[in-house]
Design a protein around this nucleic acid. Structure first.
Lengths: 206, 206
DNA sequence: TAGATTGTTAATCGATTAACAATC
DNA sequence: TAGATTGTTAATCGATTAACAATC
């Protein structure tokens, strides 16, 4: 319905979906915003406001259909389609994510792998051949929707420079530097930042 | 100075520190909030407000000393001490983080590893023996500050139940479920949520 | 119909930005 | 001293919460 959706709302959508999935697995058919809010530790108001950015999925006097709402959330996030995904960096982190996607997220089709270490080039992971930087620069140009960067920061920056002119629409960057490219949405993960925030909280209890 | 610091501020501290580290590596001595704001793409006002939660680290007419401010931020986050850290789950993700910490974050001392897979128990990673769930339950009770959970959700929930009575002050949870324990700060990472948010943005450009 | 719960508007709260006096 | 830039207060903006009429 409403056009602009803030980042705060977008970041909450996957969480709503996770909880609805769990409820569905427990064969729960319907839930009110009040009940869901209690389970998720958020206000019922926030849930209703957030959802109404996208449409009225509930019914007065009844609440929300669990399966239906979960489906709507998937549509909203675009999880009802597939994505061609490629990895730059096939070390342990890259392989961990590859394995996770293969086992749990079938909408992501792994179509390309890159790693410039001589002992990695030419090997196969999940049935896909690992390409050198030079080979992959060609591969990158077409048929990839999402690029996952699980490689050192320097490489992340090089890759970012090659992004324009490709069909890549999103980058999920685990490198320890922030990259950006016009026309491409980048999410910079920065795992160590969250560990450092944890340290802050450990040293400042309450 | 000010007592309550919002989560929004805490989450920005590691980012400030990263940029200051980079400036220091470039031998830059001083920087104004205006200049830093331009580099980081935030307002000068926000930088000054954020820092003044913790004290006046700058000097009028001059700006901030890069090295000094970086040092202050490390103190604030508690990065000027060491942490005993242990891992539950020594698969690829766990090993990736272990390697990263060893190579880049010397303040985290790896003191314990747990994995219940028969072929992992008894093996050594980074000179530390991998313990079974039973052995590790004992190990957990003392001498660990931070627990990293890089294991399936079920295991994360079991571990959370064993947390009380230990000395563990923080949990960095990569399991795909949200855990909590009283007296312990938990950061639930949820990598797949950020991938799903990326999908949302890919499907809703601008 | 009566009860429940939504969708949505209005009120509140908090975070961000702007402004400026203090001061190096 | 004059210029620059902070620390801090005040203004604005946006996000969250509360309230309630609409409606199933």
């Amino acid at each position: 319905m409403n056009n602009y959706v803030s980042d705060a709302v977008v970041r909450r959508l996957p969480r709503y979906r996770r909880y609805l999935k769990k409820l569905k697995a427990q064969d729960i058919q319907r839930i009110s915003s009040k009940e869901l809010g209690e389970i998720m530790d958020v206000t019922a108001s926030q849930i209703r406001q957030d959802l109404n950015h996208f449409g009225g999925f509930g019914q007065q006097g009844y609440g929300y259909g669990v399966a239906e709402l979960e489906g709507k959330l998937e549509e909203i996030m675009g999880l009802d389609r597939t994505y061609n995904i490629a990895f730059v960096g096939c070390g342990k982190l890259g392989q961990a994510i590859i394995n996770y996607l293969i086992g749990n997220e079938p909408i992501y089709k792994i179509v390309g792998l890159c790693d410039n270490r001589p002992d990695m080039i030419g090997t196969e992971i999940a049935g896909i051949k690992v390409q050198s930087k030079e080979e992959f620069r060609q591969r990158m140009r077409q048929g990839i929707d999402i690029l996952v960067i699980t490689a050192p920061a320097v490489i992340a920056e090089e890759v970012a420079a090659d992004l324009s002119g490709t069909e890549i629409k999103g980058v999920w960057n685990f490198g320890h530097t922030e990259i950006s490219a016009k026309g491409v949405k980048v999410i910079n993960v920065h795992l160590s930042d969250s560990l450092h925030a944890l340290c802050y909280y450990i040293n400042h209890p309450d």
